[in-house]
Design a protein around this nucleic acid. Structure first.
Lengths: 216, 216
DNA sequence: ACGAAAAAGCGAGAGAAGCTCATGTTGCAG
DNA sequence: CTGCAACATGAGCTTCTCTCGCTTTTTCGT
């Protein structure tokens, strides 16, 4: 898992130019991920990461300005991956599905992603607290994707609506499935269903508002 | 703000028995909160907290096993406060309101709470990452409250449903309003409305399911 | 009122973590 | 071949959390 090259260490530090150092940087990232998952970000020490990755600390700090930057880079790898996954739902094949089926698959897709990438949880648990800006950035990408999709799902959505709806959907799905992924399987399954119901009824209320008994 | 006594330092450390020390403990908590808000949890140092609160470090560590315990205790203060606020929605006066109005006030109540307690954000941003168990505990209280309320709102909910619905509502409202509270006022307002819509349609779908065009 | 036990007060400094820096080595372009 | 940029290295500086041994104060039974 996670074998692709480190795409964007960038920021303000040295970027590996030579093949050998690039390989070392990736080894650092892989080791760091494993240790973060196992012990948590706070408990992990840069010394241990360096030791296990078999590079001296000095070398680690040549490519990462600080410990947080390692977490950042890992978060970016996952963010890109999830966003890529969601892109599928912008394709023609998906857009022609009935709304209920579309929502069902979307929510399940996110659920599957979390199940298949246990590292995501470990990395983002830390990110949310340590660097809120980064999470915002990751979600922002998803929100933009969603904002682009919504008009194609139903032309009843005004452009301004789309932004708000996309925001709500991304945050609600993201958070609920996130939490569900930490629950026992049976309840997790139920929460996934509820999330689908929540989103479906929300979307339907726009194109087809209720005017029945209870409300008002 | 936050003038009530420190209800539960408890855990594994010494509890202040004498009036003087109790006052000191509360001073530590108030100072810590201010510093956490201003600089963030990680940047705050125990030495500074102790210095500003005008107690020696040794004394601080007599009542708090570690830095995290200070954050914990602050989180408990806020959790209790929010839960207290939500209790209002279990009263007869509220329960007789039409569902749409009930949901409106519930969501707005949470929004108001966040606006009136800026410290809540600062404290819980840290908590979520540092001690996920604590957040769970805080929400668990709210979920139980909600689980008790739901059957009174609509007897169509089965007992098993109630647990899942309460879970979804607490997490969805909590997260969305939380995020909204960090947005510019105009968009914040819009998000509050959307959250109301989201929850209302979700609840209505249980007592009065749609069988219209789009779905299926 | 007295004395002992319990609680609180205290801060130097141990221990450990993140990160730096001075210095030496290697790769690559011209 | 020459020279500059990239890379390598690890002792140790800085700064943080938390401990420990000791003194002083409060509480309370007699």
């Amino acid at each position: 898992m996670v074998k692709q090259a480190a795409s964007a260490i960038a920021r303000k530090w040295r970027q590996p130019k030579q093949a050998h150092s690039l390989e070392r940087v990736n080894r650092i990232l892989d080791v760091a991920e494993a240790i973060f998952i196992e012990q948590g970000y706070a408990a992990a020490t840069t010394k241990e990461i360096a030791a296990v990755a078999e590079v001296p600390i000095g070398t680690l700090y040549q490519f990462f300005p600080d410990k947080e930057a390692i977490l950042q880079t890992l978060a970016e790898r996952y963010s890109d991956l999830l966003n890529q996954q969601v892109q599928v739902f912008a394709t023609e094949a998906m857009l022609v599905l009935p709304l209920s089926e579309y929502v069902r698959q979307l929510v399940e897709g996110v659920d599957t992603f979390f199940l298949e990438n246990p590292g995501y949880r470990a990395v983002f648990v830390e990110i949310t607290t340590t660097m809120p800006e980064t999470e915002e950035a990751g979600d922002q990408q998803l929100i933009q994707t969603m904002t682009g999709i919504l008009p194609k799902l139903n032309s009843a959505f005004s452009p301004e609506d789309c932004e708000a709806i996309a925001f709500v959907l991304v945050k609600a799905i993201g958070n609920l499935i996130w939490i569900a992924s930490g629950q026992p399987p049976a309840f997790r399954q139920r929460l996934v269903q509820e999330t689908q119901k929540l989103c479906l009824n929300y979307l339907q209320s726009y194109s087809n508002p209720r005017i029945d008994l209870v409300s008002q």
